[in-house]
Design a protein around this nucleic acid. Structure first.
Lengths: 209, 209, 209, 209
DNA sequence: GACTAACCGAGACGGTACGTCCCGTCTTAAG
DNA sequence: CTTAAGACGGGACGTACCGTCTCGGTTAGTC
């Protein structure tokens, strides 16, 4: 765990530890900050969002932001995570290739347009700031890998995949191409690509069945 | 090509155009700038490099930098490209999987330690600045895709691959996982990974041989 | 007097009014605040003392300070007044010039080193804040003028001074040069200067004796 | 002299030393800053003037102010010095007491209302910041002492004063009361006070003539 | 050989945002 | 009802760099 460091996301102290004294954290400010971050993100794009802009938009002191987050990237990460919460649906069609294709198509949809730009902005930060990269992994990457892991695990239970397959490797092979296109924009993240990846993975791993 | 825009890398006027009058570009300054950029890059990391820092380190006016490059990212890109020039060797063992494995192992080697950090820094900029992203694709990405394309093309010539295989897709499936691990650092870019990717690609595409 | 405004110095509610219910004022906190103020004053100088610093040093809530004083200057004024309480001795040698000289020499002594710096800090605040200036006059200036007034009055009683002399003017003529040197530091507040002022005043006003 | 320190007032390098390289200082900005400082000083008072306010009013970057002055006080000092330049007229009536009275009356006039507030603000800063105090002495105090010195010197030449009189002491005895009333505001700086001081000084020093 | 044009270093310029400090107010739980 | 604690909105600080500009001073061609 992280121990003494500032928590990645702004949680008002763990509920078990009583905060003891002092004015408690303002939920209104917290929400206003995240809402302002999201608004500016859509209006101006990741690069043009600033801490000062968020503070001003949220009618909040800058210090209140710095008290709970370490950088603009972390504010935006939390805002974006809240915004996309619950959007990761795990399909269950009974067939691995179909599950993958549906899942990836849906994932690609979530990376088009503005959302894609936001994710690119967040990753830009993560590439440069190790602390934030950790936050990004914990909050953003992990949940998406977990969803994919579920799909693959169901494939194993169904017998479509060998039980000794290296799931983490498969996940890298699937998400890798997605990120590669998201980063480089040399080709689109369209349903066709989702199908190609799914077909590749499923046919390779299940051919001997 | 880019038409009227400033060239991506700093080329002293196209040789065909008459050089006109005036003092010619100083090669010393050019070299000093790239050397300073590289030095600061290794000393302080991508994020902490600034145009002012480079100018100061190179004992050069800021304007001299702005005259030939559009951003710090482009200076660094050129410096790094020069630094890594000629490092892309295309193996030719007569076997696709072996070629891939050798090539990837060597590519991964070039992304360890500081070089990996530099590439991460460059990609961080590319994610946020479309102009730079284009430069990055042209200079960095394209040459690496091209090398992989050669390898795959030789596979086709040898009959290991079907002639109608989608080469660009295959390249995405190979480079994707590499970038994904480079970005997220959740797992190492080691020879084992090179082997796993190579095996996956080769066995899938050549199984019917 | 000040009528409805918050009292200049912190008096625990007038003793005649019934104390009402609730937790009584903490004398410990009061003392701790003044002690902390004095300590920081000597350690860091007037300008660097802050309310937050005093609160922290005294292990007291900021509100507790704001409840009893209106500004940092007033806290420091009270702390300093307490610190220098009873230091104003009125000499009585039977001779005006001697009395003046003794009194001024002693006054100058009290303005050397740190105490002088503190007085300069307090005056700095008074110059800018009218409310505090009033407090300063009431607490600091008035008592010193009063002492001088006593000395001059005794001179009149002794017949050394004419009974219609403008005492307040004389006081200005005496204290003025002292403050002038304290402010500008262009020359020292030494016994020689005390003697020169005393001689000037006494000889002018008593020459026809 | 001051040697390596930043000059007290913002002089574009001594005219004899050629600045050698770089864009020269902008006279427009310099003037705009001083004009803005003066304007804000009259509109809002010393305490409410801020560096940011001056920069904004002058349409100038903050750094341009910090490049040439060390504090808000120094900007205001220069603006005020320029504003009051040439206002110190040395009377020459042929009589010491008259000269003093005229001079002081005029000096008191220059310390009424806003100007008095500005001087109080400047002195407030000088009391707390030794560097600024030096600037204040050099620019403000010195010229005024010098004028008074001229008056007294003419008195010596005329034979009204003994040639061995301690001029610096007399100056302290004259300016002291003025500052004392300016600081404490316990009595007005009116013509009557000018007359009282002049009479006191002149009669004491010239009685034996 | 002077003229001219583009280069060069230096560094000041207007400007944006940073992250920090401290203000004076407020909101808790504890006493 | 006071207290310690500490979060809050807010204002200004002084700094770092941005990308532009304006100097004096090269350094080539072209007249």
């Amino acid at each position: 765990m992280k121990a003494k460091k500032k928590p990645i996301t702004s949680e008002t102290k763990s509920p078990s530890k009583p905060p003891r004294a002092g004015r408690p954290r303002s939920a209104e400010s917290h929400d206003a900050i995240l809402a302002a971050a999201l608004k500016l993100l859509h209006e101006r794009g990741y690069r043009s969002v600033t801490i000062e802009g968020i503070a001003s938009e949220a009618a909040v002191g800058k210090q209140t932001i710095y008290r709970w987050w370490r950088s603009k990237a972390e504010v935006i990460l939390e805002a974006f995570a809240r915004y996309t919460a619950g959007r990761i649906a795990v399909p269950d069609s009974g067939n691995l290739q179909t599950d993958l294709q549906v899942f990836l198509t849906q994932a690609f949809d979530g990376l088009t347009q503005e959302s894609g730009e936001v994710v690119r902005g967040l990753m830009s930060e993560a590439l440069i700031d190790p602390d934030f990269a950790e936050a990004m992994r914990d909050i953003f990457i992990a949940s998406r890998r977990s969803a994919l892991r579920d799909i693959l695990f169901k494939g194993i239970q169904r017998g479509e995949l060998a039980s000794d397959v290296d799931i983490e490797l498969i996940i890298d092979l699937i998400y890798g191409p997605m990120w590669y296109r998201l980063l480089n924009k040399h080709a689109p993240l369209n349903p066709r690509f989702a199908k190609q990846i799914s077909e590749m993975i499923a046919s390779k791993l299940t051919r001997s069945d």
